[in-house]
Amino acid sequence: MFTVGNTIFLILITVLCVSPMIHLLAVSLSTNVYVIAGQVSFWPRGFTTAAYQHLAVQTEFFRALWISVQRVVLGTSINMIMVVLVAYPLSKEVSVFRARTVFAWIFAFTMFFGGGLIPMFFVIQRTGIMGTIWALVLPGAISVWHAVMLLNFFRGVPKELEEAAHIDGAGHMITLVKVFLPLSLPALATILLFTTVGHWNSWFDGMIFMRSPADFPLSTYLAMLVMQADTAARVLLTPEEIMALAEVDDRTIRIAQIFLGALPIMMVYPFLQRYFIKGIVVGSVKG
């Protein structure tokens, strides 16, 4: 009884969550005029693959995709290393690492305060990373939120294992790599997922710190498409704007790009899922 109800409920949730993707897919496979007129819900009207054919020969989309891949790989690597290196010392008791609480607050403090865009722009400019991929990676390299999460997982690692490693003559670095990391795989996989998704999705920094759309990562490029289509903020129309207004917004192509843009990152989750398998930690401790 419970199992049946539970299954039905979860299927409902699944449908609810998957429906926007199906809607986008249907739109991307429809003729534009039906899309503009709001006639497409979950099944294409005027079926056509024209949007995808158009995209296949377009270089910008794939260029932006490549930049995104670089950003994710570079950014995620740095973030993961940093988060581990921060979480480990801070997970220690005060008796082991006396300054831990001070440092914990130094890190936590940055979660609440920022100086805003202008000083950040200043710093990026003065550190010479403006317009480079580092401007997308370094400012957010320390994710305090994730470090706090990981340090709480580290605390769950049995003390005996750590002590055993120390008795074997292992230093902190070795203990971290050989004992803590293997036991924290579900947590690490979670953080890896969040970081990857975070880098993939963030678009605003790309707009501000890159010089031209040719350097935009995919999410920034897609955000630009959405914004260019959004003409609602105008008051006085210049001749060029009047010309542009005549273009019927090609929403089919736009949505096709948004749909394609979400696909690669959706693949990451099933890949990481194996690390969420129940019982890894407990099993290792017992072993």
Binding site: Q70, V73, L74, S77, I78, I81
Partner: peptide, 8 residues
Amino acid sequence: LAFFVTTA
């Protein structure tokens, strides 16, 4: 890590 050092 190795990848980022080269591509970056």
